[in-house]
Computed example of a mutant assay.
Amino acid sequence: MAPKAVLFDFSGTLFRLEQDESWLTELTDTGGDPLDIEAQAELMRKMTAPVGQVVELDEEHRHAWENRDLDPALHAKVYAEVLRQSGVPRVEQAKALYSRLVDPARWTPYPDAEPVLKALSDKGIRVAVVSNIAFDIRPAFSARGLDAYVEKFVLSFEEGVIKPEPGIFRVALEALGVDGPDALMVGDAEEADGGARALGCDFALVEPLPTAERTDGLLAALREHGAL
């Protein structure tokens, strides 16, 4: 049976933060030297990791990390520390890079995101986006006309609850008017996104690969679970 609703994660599922080369070319380490390619790649991995502490943190910053997706101020605070520990010691450089992280216009949709959302709409399957995030991602969708296919955005910093806690998925299900067993959750994090199983949802895991490398991951996942 096809699900009546599909819940999507945002980062690494529908969209991915992929830097322009110019983002990091002016970054320098503590010695004033430009960051090499490996350091740049590792920096972006840390900036977009969906779960798991990415650097060693003291108690104050560990609290900020654990609650970063509930409070934009804590999000900014802990990522300033992540950047500092990741070889970006200059405050102005860290602020410039962080501003790109939280700018929805900088995020790139996966190639099959639009076809999948449109196909679900055409079939009458209701859609929500459920994200652990500390900034408003709606502009990333509206800029491309994809908001027309999303009935509800459930964002952790607005709802005061984060995945994998059942409450955040419950908000989405109630908004769509469906029960857990009638819904499919699609995400790139087994622990966080898979929390939807607690409410009876089916779950599809996709890999958070670069968009050029994952061209049909969403289509494949939805077909496998009978949604398309």
Rank of each mutant, 00 (worst) to 15 (best):
V82S: 00
Q85K: 15
Q40I: 10
E66D: 15
S22N: 08
A113E: 05
W65C: 04
L83W: 04
G52A: 01
M44C: 14
E56N: 02
Q93K: 03
T108I: 15
L101D: 02
E21K: 09
V102G: 07
D20Q: 10
D69G: 05
Q85L: 14
T108V: 15
L17P: 11
R100F: 03
Q93S: 07
G87I: 05
I37P: 00
V78R: 01
M44I: 15
W107Y: 03
K95M: 02
G31I: 00
L14E: 12
Y98M: 07
L117V: 11
P111F: 09
R100C: 06
A76E: 15
R16K: 13
R62E: 15
Y98I: 05
V55N: 00
L117D: 06
T25R: 14
E38A: 08
L74E: 15
A64W: 13
V88E: 07
P34N: 01
T25S: 13
E92G: 00
L74H: 11
Q85N: 00
P109E: 14
E114M: 05
A96N: 07
Q53C: 11
A119V: 01
E81Y: 10
R62C: 08
G32N: 00
G31C: 03
E42R: 09
G32M: 06
L120G: 00
A73R: 14
E59A: 15
K95V: 10
E92L: 09
M44T: 13
M44W: 09
L97V: 14
V91D: 12
S99G: 05
I37V: 11
D69T: 07
L35W: 06
K77S: 12
E66H: 10
G31K: 10
H61L: 11
T108C: 06
F10K: 00
H61C: 04
W65T: 09
A64S: 15
D103E: 14
Q40K: 12
H75N: 15
P50M: 08
A49N: 04
A94V: 05
T108D: 12
D112T: 14
H61K: 05
D33F: 05
V51E: 15
P72Y: 11
T13P: 00
P115K: 05
S22L: 08
L74R: 15
E26D: 13
H75F: 14
V116D: 01
R68T: 05
D69R: 02
R45H: 06
H63Y: 15
D71H: 13
A96S: 08
D103F: 02
Q93P: 00
E59N: 12
L57Q: 01
Q19N: 03
A105V: 09
D20T: 04
P89Q: 02
T30V: 04
V82L: 00
